[in-house]
Design a protein around this nucleic acid. Structure first.
Lengths: 146, 146
DNA sequence: GAATATTAGTTGTTTTTGTAACTAACAAGG
DNA sequence: CCTTGTTAGTTACAAAAACAACTAATATTC
């Protein structure tokens, strides 16, 4: 088997990336899942609002490359949890500006703390230079402008 | 906003990893999806069998960290497509040995070719050293023994 | 060697996602 | 204006994933 096999599955980047992503997500997931009953898209939306301030659903979608239906549902759940408020734009009444409530802000800060700690723990396994290279490469692969 | 904010979402590794994984998966997906109507778990199982030869569902699950229900369904579909054969282990009649049929082998080789090409194209954006570091780090993060 | 526990794999049910079609608001061209 | 086109966001339905409960075979233990 595998005659001229210069291909190793565990070196294939899409495979490796997915495995690493799943593994690292799993570790962070329990924070937002257990404590706040959130889904992945929900904390992403929450983090965007916490990180960049008031945004519309469309802006979040564009920045995070999340489909609008996922955002719509995530926003609905976050609004239900009283973590975000939605206010119609008076100039363009199709879109609405999303912002964190104090409770949402608190959840964001709490989760951000855990995220930072989690991230630090991951990075501790590598040298500073390695981590810098990893981030630079992942940003490139993800299509995020440097 | 963001008073003592030494936290940037686009530097958070689980986020970056997921974005990069999603992006890279998307590119490769169309090969196995359009040409063979496969799902992600299906090509993973196919690749394991092609790469490591005959295995049981359990062994694949352990190596790829895929849940047994996903494997069970993927194997069922692959068997339906006549890409794998299942033969009961005579010593332990609970488990069965999975192996590729000639058609499965052909599909594997075809997809492997595309995978290799895809991987090469991705790597071309970086230096050899960077790619080596990336692979090493991802293997570590994914919990794959070096 | 019967009773209990484990293991390999499957099936059923519930969540979550993906996709397409929809509503409502705005924009442009005639 | 008023038809046609576009955009922001929602909803409905189909596909896939997660989780729990199941069957059948093997191990264990008393």
């Amino acid at each position: 088997m595998n005659e001229k096999d210069d291909f190793a599955l565990q070196d294939f980047l899409p495979y490796l990336l997915n495995r690493a992503a799943e593994e690292s997500s799993l570790g962070f997931q329990k924070h937002y899942k257990n404590r706040y009953g959130m889904l992945r898209t929900e904390w992403r939306v929450l983090f965007h609002l916490g990180n960049y301030g008031q945004m519309t659903a469309k802006e979040i979608g564009a920045r995070a490359k999340i489909h609008k239906t996922k955002i719509s549902r995530a926003v609905a759940k976050l609004a239900e949890k009283r973590f975000v408020t939605r206010t119609r734009d008076e100039n363009d009444r199709r879109s609405e500006h999303l912002a964190l409530t104090p409770a949402g802000e608190a959840a964001y800060k709490d989760l951000r703390e855990h995220a930072l700690e989690f991230d630090t723990r991951i990075c501790a396994r590598f040298t500073t230079g390695e981590v810098a290279i990893l981030r630079y490469m992942l940003r490139n692969l993800a299509g995020i402008e440097p």
